[in-house]
């Protein structure tokens, strides 16, 4: 962990305080055990979610910039958001204010009405996953891992929001969550749809459209025999979890895949109790999946004898 970053401003966002309390519960436990300090932005407000920007952009940007202003005032250099939508809005606002002079002036004029102001670029806007992977690092996480998630097959689901342009990770096929889960001892399955859309708010507009998007994801995870899907966003978790019964009804399928926050899986591996991590609040129960976690590392699949006829397969990138 870089010493400069042992102090973070923390922007929880609305979802985490309502539909996804388990995310915050597990995040706080994990953050605590990793020795990081998250200082909540005082008097924060909604990030505007995704809709507000398309309706009236100046108030939308100003709404977000208010949070940036408050966070910068607290003196932190980094602002962490566990929710991908919050992260995207905060990051986008900071970036566009820096890029577009007019927007910057307008937003700051709006902020000035509340005796606030924000200089773009003064905060590093980070997603929780990025902070854990970059600042803590896999070595420390490996050391902290007391109860590896041996035998649990997990599909890493990134969602579509953290892979927008400007990401420092490969936006087409990110692998940092894969790597993190692997360090925790889990068996990570290939998940080609890892960055596809979860439906977002479409469930409220056209359930047919939304359920088809959710079905694809569940189907793909099922194809790769995942015991659980790991998410990094409250919206993704909710859509895949809460609407799983409806999807089953609509498509006559029988998916039974628990959708878990990556922090819950980290907590489990760190030896924190299920209760403290908010397990039990999910709609599709995680019990069956958690029972699969074994006391011993799975036997490495024996290198299959070379099929005389088969052509060699290229090695994947290290």
């Amino acid at each position: 962990m870089s010493p400069a970053n042992d102090h973070y401003a923390y922007y929880p966002g609305c979802s985490i305080r309502s539909t996804s309390k388990a995310y915050e519960q597990s995040t706080m436990k994990v953050v605590e055990s990793l020795g990081m300090t998250f200082q909540e932005v005082e008097d924060w407000n909604c990030c505007g979610a995704t809709e507000y920007f398309s309706i009236n952009s100046l108030p939308a940007y100003s709404l977000v910039a208010r949070n940036l202003s408050l966070a910068a005032e607290q003196g932190a250099s980094d602002l962490v958001a566990p929710c991908s939508a919050c992260f995207l809005n905060l990051h986008k606002t900071d970036k566009y204010m820096g890029k577009y002079k007019d927007l910057n002036e307008d937003v700051n004029q709006a902020l000035a009405a509340g005796n606030l102001g924000y200089e773009p670029g003064s905060l590093q806007i980070r997603h929780l996953l990025d902070v854990i992977v970059e600042d803590i690092g896999f070595d420390t996480i490996a050391e902290k891992t007391e109860k590896p998630l041996w035998g649990l097959r997990v599909a890493p689901y990134y969602g579509c929001l953290i892979v927008r342009p400007d990401s420092k990770y490969n936006p087409e096929y990110p692998t940092h969550l894969d790597e993190l889960l692997r360090v925790l001892g889990a068996t990570v399955v290939d998940f080609p749809l890892k960055t596809h859309c979860c439906g977002g708010h479409m469930t409220q507009i056209s359930d047919e459209t939304a359920y088809e998007l959710i079905r694809r994801l569940l189907h793909n995870a099922d194809e790769y025999q995942a015991d659980a899907i790991a998410t990094i966003c409250p919206m993704c978790q909710m859509n895949l979890d809460v609407f799983q019964p409806q999807v089953n009804r609509m498509f006559k399928t029988d998916f039974d895949i628990p959708i878990l926050y990556f922090t819950q899986l980290m907590g489990l591996a760190f030896g924190i109790s299920e209760k403290e991590l908010g397990f039990g609040s999910e709609v599709v129960s995680a019990n069956a999946a958690l029972k699969k976690i074994a006391d011993e590392a799975p036997e490495k699949a024996k290198k299959a004898r070379r099929d005389k006829k088969a052509l060699p397969m290229p090695e994947s990138l290290p």
């Binding site: 490969n170 087409e172 397969m313 290229p314 090695e315 990138l317």
Partner: peptide
């Protein structure tokens, strides 16, 4: 060019994706 650097094309992950030079040899 190392085609594995374009992960969305699946080279190194999906068996039946080949590079042009592999195909030349084939």
């Amino acid at each position: 060019f190392d085609a594995r650097k374009v992960p969305q094309y699946g080279y190194g992950r999906l068996a039946n994706v080949f590079t042009s030079m592999e195909f030349e040899r084939m």
